[in-house]
Simulated scan of single mutants.
Amino acid sequence: MRLAALACFALSAALLAGCATPDRDARLQPGSSREADVIAIYGPPVKVWPEVDGGRTLEYSSQPMGRHAYMVRLAADGRLVGVLDGLSPAGRARIEPGMTPEQVSRLLGRERTRVFFRNSGEDVWDWTVEPDQTGYGLRFNVHFKEGVVLRTTHSMVFPSRLFPGLDD
Rank of each mutant, 00 (worst) to 15 (best):
C19E: 09
W49P: 01
A40N: 13
G54C: 10
I41D: 10
A36P: 02
F9W: 05
V38F: 02
P44E: 09
T57L: 06
T21Q: 06
A14N: 04
R24E: 13
L16M: 13
Q29R: 15
G55I: 03
A13N: 05
G55P: 03
G18E: 04
L16D: 15
C8W: 05
A14I: 10
A40P: 06
V38N: 02
A20F: 03
L15M: 08
V46A: 10
A13H: 14
V46Q: 07
S33H: 02
Y42A: 01
D25E: 07
F9T: 11
W49D: 06
A14E: 00
C19R: 11
C8L: 13
T57W: 00
A36N: 08
A40H: 15
R27V: 13
L11H: 05
F9L: 08
A17P: 01
P50H: 03
D37H: 06
L16N: 08
W49E: 04
G43Q: 06
A26D: 14
G55F: 07
V48P: 09
D25C: 01
A36F: 14
T57K: 00
C19Y: 02
G55S: 11
A20Q: 04
G31Y: 10
L11G: 09
P22L: 05
G54N: 08
R56N: 03
A17D: 04
E51W: 04
Y42E: 01
D53I: 00
R56Q: 07
I39S: 08
I41P: 06
G54T: 13
R27G: 08
